[in-house]
Write a protein that binds this DNA or RNA. Structure first.
Length: 561
RNA sequence: AGGGGCGUCGCCAAGCGGUAAGGCACCGGAUUUUGAUUCCGGCAUUCCCAGGUUCGAUCCCUGGCGCCCCUGCCA
């Protein structure tokens, strides 16, 4: 956590908690992260996780992991497993505090009977459509259900028979008796329980009656002694109901606090849409490196520490916002720059022959693995007469500020020699440049420049003799517009970036990279950060580009073209 | 004349009556065997608008304007 600025980590929620602690309203802080296991976690969840677990850490309290599993038709064990793995990977530990709303089903049911006994709930026989009609509209009050005044005995009998499975799905619900004329629609006798003859991933067929969010979430919070129940803005209108239920049930009453959910440019952040992308095969899966999911980012090579820094940096507020992707990328680069070893890799190879270098010979240069952190050690880099350089590092007719290789020009081969381009060999048929014939200055080995001559261009390279062939996946933004869901009349899927994935099959890497372990990350000098794909096989590695390096040349070149 | 919430630099975000923090982005410039990193410097006389209270208002009051959320037996 950044402690260099006095306001780091401070937000309105911290202020509210400080007040609660100072006034004696609370003595400790207990938060919870309450995912529904119906999809994979994304960076928006990371904001909530960092907030809730971060608060617990800051106040020496605790944070529970609670699965909000009240809708069996959408939830699966697969999601539970993935969510736990993601939270752990992000660096948080819920200890023994792993809970499930479904573990409270019996107690929740008892709460329902208590509400009926207090004449604050009733079984309603209206169907879904009728309930909607009776609810009224935003500007007109609703009407009371004809079943609203059933006796306690009848309600209890009906609810018990509902639980016993006597009635079909949709035929009856349990409703809270609040106020059908409330301007807050959530208070117009909200549904508390619905009949669902569905098998639950944890409770099996024990129940055919399942509580709604409003009758499960706050009650679970209460049972667990949550002091601050932090959720996103769309639940603000539910808070009066949250409060009403705690009062009606006369149970411990946590405080609900709402904050703005995270939005990021060039991506989408709803589980519904992410599920669509997965199901419609527009991406390779939940962990596709282009996805804003934690599993996707992990596969992409984003370090967990970078995501934590990001969540700290963006702050917590109540205004709808959309964070620029560059903020996240900056966090990723910062983390990787400090921690990751450098390597040489050529993505789009162009053959270079050093004509004055002795044939059949070679040498090894000992080079540092990190320019500033010597603790990362050194490695040996082979050099020889035949090399490969990046195609982008040669231009036959370069523009003004280009200072890489061109006919007659001299550049430094990083950590090796100065070379001059003497001749350009082209494919006679296509005119494509296929080889460069260069000469080197033997006095400039290992970076030396005895005569002090100024050579601005430094390019990366790989010796042909022992280059490792590799596949490289280049990832770019998933969508081609900053806010793909802004236009409500269009389909966000039409805005997918067709160039979000580019597969390079002919990259050549330095020998050391052949043995790189899956998941390990490197900076390919001058190109960006790359990590070994988890499904990569040894000897024929597959690298994912995590993020490019900042490229001020690209800006200049872009302006000139 | 439904209710709730929000409006401080291009994007986030501090600020809580005493005269606009910070980050990202952007623009310079220095160092550099990565056009990277690092480092220096620039970047809101102004806080949605209009009135009012006050010696003094981004912070208080009044009235506008704009955006978001709520009419699932989803969460």
């Amino acid at each position: 956590m950044d402690t260099t600025t006095p306001t780091a980590g401070v937000n309105f929620i911290r202020n509210l908690i400080d007040d609660d602690l100072a006034s004696g309203r609370q003595r400790t802080v207990v938060t919870r992260f309450p995912p529904e296991p119906n999809g994979y976690l994304h960076i928006g969840h990371a904001k909530s996780i960092c907030l809730n677990f971060g608060l617990a850490l800051h106040y020496s309290g605790r944070c529970h992991l609670r699965f909000d599993d009240t809708n069996p038709v959408k939830e699966e064990q697969e999601y539970i497993d993935a969510i736990k793995a993601d939270v752990r990977w992000l660096g948080f530990d819920w200890g023994a505090h792993e809970y499930y709303a479904s573990d409270y089903f019996e107690r929740l049911y008892a709460f329902a009977e208590r509400l009926i006994e207090k004449e604050l709930a009733y079984v309603c026989d209206l169907n879904a459509e009728q309930i909607r009609e009776y609810r009224g509209t935003l500007t007109e009050p609703g009407r009371e259900s004809p079943y609203r005044s059933r006796s306690v005995a009848e309600n209890l009998d009906l609810l018990r028979r509902m639980r016993a499975g006597e009635f079909a799905d949709g035929t009856r619900v349990l409703r809270a008796k609040v106020d059908m004329t409330s301007p807050n629609l959530n208070l117009r006798d909200p549904v508390l329980y619905r009949i669902l003859h569905a098998t639950h991933h944890r409770t099996g067929d024990a129940w055919c009656l399942y509580p709604m969010y409003d009758f499960a979430h706050g009650q679970s919070d209460s049972l667990e002694g949550i002091t601050h129940s932090i959720c996103t803005l769309e639940f603000e209108a539910h808070r009066p109901l949250y409060d009403w239920l705690c009062e009606a049930l006369e149970i411990y009453h946590p405080r609900q606090i709402e904050f703005a959910r995270l939005n990021l440019t060039y991506t989408v952040m709803s589980k519904r849409r992410l599920l669509e992308l997965v199901n419609e095969r527009r991406v390779a899966g939940w962990d596709d490196p282009r996805m804003p999911t934690l599993s996707g980012m992990r596969r992409r090579g984003y370090p967990a520490a970078a995501i934590r820094t990001f969540c700290e940096r963006i702050g917590v507020g109540k205004s709808d916002s959309i964070i620029d992707m560059s903020v996240l990328e900056d966090c990723v680069r910062e983390e990787l720059d400090h921690t990751v070893p450098r390597a040489m890799g050529v993505l789009r190879p162009l053959k270079v022959v050093i004509t004055n270098y002795p044939e059949g010979e070679g040498e090894q240069f000992t080079v540092p693995n990190h320019p500033k952190d010597s603790s990362l050690g050194t490695r040996s880099l082979p050099f020889g007469r035949e090399l490969y350089i990046e195609r982008d590092d040669f231009m036959e007719d370069p523009p003004g500020k280009y200072f890489r290789l061109a006919p007659g020009r001299e550049v430094r081969l990083r950590y090796a020699y100065l070379i001059r381009c003497d001749e350009v060999v082209k494919d006679p048929a296509s005119g494509e440049v296929v080889e460069l014939r260069c000469s080197y200055d033997p006095a400039t080995g290992g970076g030396a420049t005895p005569d002090g001559r100024k050579v601005k261009g430094i390019i990366h390279w790989v010796a042909a003799a022992n280059a490792v062939p590799a596949a490289v996946h280049l990832y770019d933004r998933l969508f081609s517009v900053a806010n793909p869901t802004a236009d409500k009349t269009g389909d966000y899927r039409d805005l997918l970036n067709p160039a979000s994935l580019e597969i390079l099959g002919e990259a050549l890497l330095e020998p050391m990279l052949a043995a790189a372990a899956p998941g390990s990350c490197f900076q390919f000098e001058r190109l960006g950060y790359f990590c070994v794909d988890p499904e990569s096989v040894s000897g024929q590695p597959c690298f994912n580009r995590t993020v490019t390096l900042r490229d001020s040349w690209a800006k200049v070149a872009g302006v000139e073209s």
